[in-house]
Computed example of a mutant assay.
Amino acid sequence: MLDRRQIVPVVDAALLEDAPHGDLTSEVFVPAEALATADLVAREAGVLAGAEVFELAMTTVDPAIEVTLHAADGDRFEAGASLATVRGSARAVLRAERIALNLLQRMCGIATLTARYVDAAGPGIRVTDTRKTTPGLRALERHAVVCGGGHNHRFSLSEAVMAKDNHLALVDDVTAAIRAARARLPHTVHLEVEVDRIEQIEPVLAGGVDTIMLDNFSLDELRAGVALVAGRALVEASGNVSLETIGAIAATGVDLVSVGALTHSARGLDLGLDVRLT
Rank of each mutant, 00 (worst) to 15 (best):
A19D: 03
A19P: 03
A19M: 06
P20D: 07
P20S: 07
H21D: 13
H21Q: 13
H21V: 12
G22H: 09
G22A: 06
G22N: 03
D23W: 12
L24I: 14
L24C: 01
L24F: 15
T25V: 05
S26I: 05
E27W: 12
V28Y: 12
F29C: 14
V30T: 15
V30Q: 03
P31K: 09
A32E: 15
A32P: 10
E33P: 06
E33F: 11
E33Y: 11
E33D: 14
A34S: 14
A34C: 08
A34P: 02
A34N: 01
A36S: 14
T37E: 13
T37I: 10
T37C: 09
T37L: 00
A38H: 09
D39P: 00
D39E: 14
L40G: 05
L40M: 03
A42N: 06
R43F: 01
E44Q: 15
E44N: 10
A45S: 14
G46V: 02
V47E: 03
L48A: 15
L48Y: 00
A49R: 00
G50V: 01
A51C: 13
V53N: 05
V53D: 01
V53T: 12
F54Y: 02
F54L: 15
E55H: 03
E55R: 15
L56V: 08
L56G: 01
L56T: 12
A57M: 07
M58H: 14
T59H: 02
T59R: 15
T60N: 06
V61R: 09
V61D: 02
D62G: 08
P63M: 05
P63K: 04
A64E: 12
A64C: 07
I65N: 01
I65P: 06
I65M: 08
E66S: 13
V67P: 04
V67I: 04
T68I: 09
T68N: 07
T68E: 13
L69I: 01
L69F: 05
L69H: 13
H70E: 12
A71I: 05
A72V: 06
G74C: 06
G74T: 06
R76S: 15
R76F: 04
R76H: 13
R76Q: 14
F77R: 06
E78M: 03
A79G: 11
A79K: 09
A79C: 00
G80F: 07
G80Y: 07
A81S: 15
S82F: 00
S82I: 13
L83W: 11
T85H: 09
V86I: 15
V86P: 11
V86F: 05
R87N: 08
G88A: 09
S89G: 14
S89F: 06
S89C: 10
A90V: 04
A90W: 08
A92T: 03
